[in-house]
Design a protein around this nucleic acid. Structure first.
Lengths: 255, 255
DNA sequence: GGGGGCGTTCCAATTTTTGGAATGATAATC
DNA sequence: GATTATCATTCCAAAAATTGGAACGCCCCC
């Protein structure tokens, strides 16, 4: 997947840890071996190494592998160090309260867009996206915003890679997407309607670092039946305010 | 440190991530290279690999390495999956409220005792221990409790390894510690007074899994001037209640 | 404009990881 | 209680990955 100076073991570690999700908290050796297509002996050795460091642990009850205590420590540290999440959370909460829609915080990572924080809409019918979910960078408001502010050559590389259709309105033509990204940079926000999921819309604005780089996007998304022309404009305004507020906090956060 | 089928890259990963702490959130390549005594070229390649997965990131401002977003995701998942922390937190909070002293949740891991959760005493003068702190298993109430319930051969191995003196009352004689551990198993709790830090005392009780294994310890600790014979007995009772409550919750937690 | 610090790249030597096959352990079935 | 599956664990020669010294490039400061 990478042309980087990949260290295979790190890739493997990520594969293993990423096998755990909110829907899947335990794996037996055999299951995981099949899931990742790694021979059991190899995987077994590897899992023991992870266990020795508390990265994984075996549930004494069913002898399945679970996440250990160490990811907890790392996560807590990371949360303390990255001002972003900490700062963003309260802002996201009030944005969700004001709008009644789901609020998403996303970052661009290596050809993908990852959701790193969310606050759910109180409505039963809402956009539900788990923290950790990855999306291609060309579809959806948050994705497009993040893509729009990448370095030009990286944008071109992504365009070269192809633009698979995910939903009815996914932009699949490179030139159309180039123009859309230019429009986003000009307007300072992105809008999407059924680009990734049927019946869903979204808006998103960039979050700027104190150094003037786009480091994340804050997005608002929901079902189309709760959307109207006016509410979109309103939502864009609120989203932009939230993004600005977060950016401003970041200036104070670090040193 | 291990006789396990160690995978070197995993050891290295843990070394690198453990270099980050609440007191140290950023490292330059050179600093980290010296800190860990790894050649720069090797470390550089490795850090790039971690960056490619979002495990680390470079702060655009000072170009130092920081923890990335991915540990956050892992930490969040681990928190959801391990009933322990989630269940223990409210119990710990009320224990801290009742006693006014710092409450610690610890686990045994590979020859060390690690603090995985804490609730601070409201007093200005209090025992302050960061989550993630490691301690040797022979000194301090929580440590002794966890050691007491290890398999006999593991206890012996730890005794063989030596019992360095950490403070005035550290038990450094193997036979004395054997007897102390037996007493702890009999009484069901551990007490310590200036075994790890001057002016500090602690009590701790084991937390049992539904499978009848000791999986963690809950401890209470503070400055000696706020301690008395009676309060200790009281604290032991409260600690034990808290541990039992947590154990009981655990039965319900998993499936 | 040259010295020093820091980050990055390269590649042959070296070390680690690999994984098929054999062996234990445990649960399920007859 | 013997027999058969299923899953976990160990072993070691072959294969693949990592290593790290050395050289290069960049930027800042004197």
């Amino acid at each position: 997947m990478e042309d980087n100076p990949a260290v295979k073991t790190v890739n493997r570690l990520v594969e293993v840890l990423d096998s755990f999700s909110s829907r899947r908290s335990g794996w037996s050796l055999t299951e995981l071996s099949e899931h990742l297509d790694i021979p059991k002996s190899t995987l077994h050795r590897f899992l023991l190494a992870l266990e020795a460091h508390g990265i994984l642990q075996r549930d004494p009850k069913d002898r399945r592998w679970r996440l250990g205590y160490r990811p907890l420590l790392w996560g807590r540290l990371a949360a303390n160090h990255s001002g972003l999440q900490v700062v963003a959370r309260p802002v996201m909460e009030s944005l969700a309260a004001e709008t009644g829609e789901t609020v998403l915080l996303t970052v661009y990572q290596n050809g993908e867009v990852v959701c790193i924080e969310k606050v759910d809409s109180p409505h039963a019918i809402r956009l539900a996206m788990d923290v950790g979910t990855r999306r291609p960078p060309h579809a959806g408001a948050s994705s497009k915003v993040l893509m729009a502010y990448l370095p030009p050559d990286e944008i071109e590389a992504l365009l070269q890679r192809g633009l698979p259709r995910l939903c009815t309105n996914t932009i699949t033509d490179p030139q159309a997407l180039r123009e859309e990204l230019a429009r986003i940079r000009e307007q300072g926000y992105a809008f999407s309607m059924e680009e990734t999921d049927l019946g869903a819309w979204g808006v998103a604005t960039p979050i700027w670092s104190p150094q003037g780089e786009v480091i994340a996007a804050i997005g608002l998304a929901g079902p189309t039946f709760r959307m109207s022309e006016e509410s979109v404009q309103q939502y864009v305004r609120l989203c932009r305010q939230a993004a600005e507020q977060i950016s401003r906090f970041l200036i104070f956060a670090h040193s």
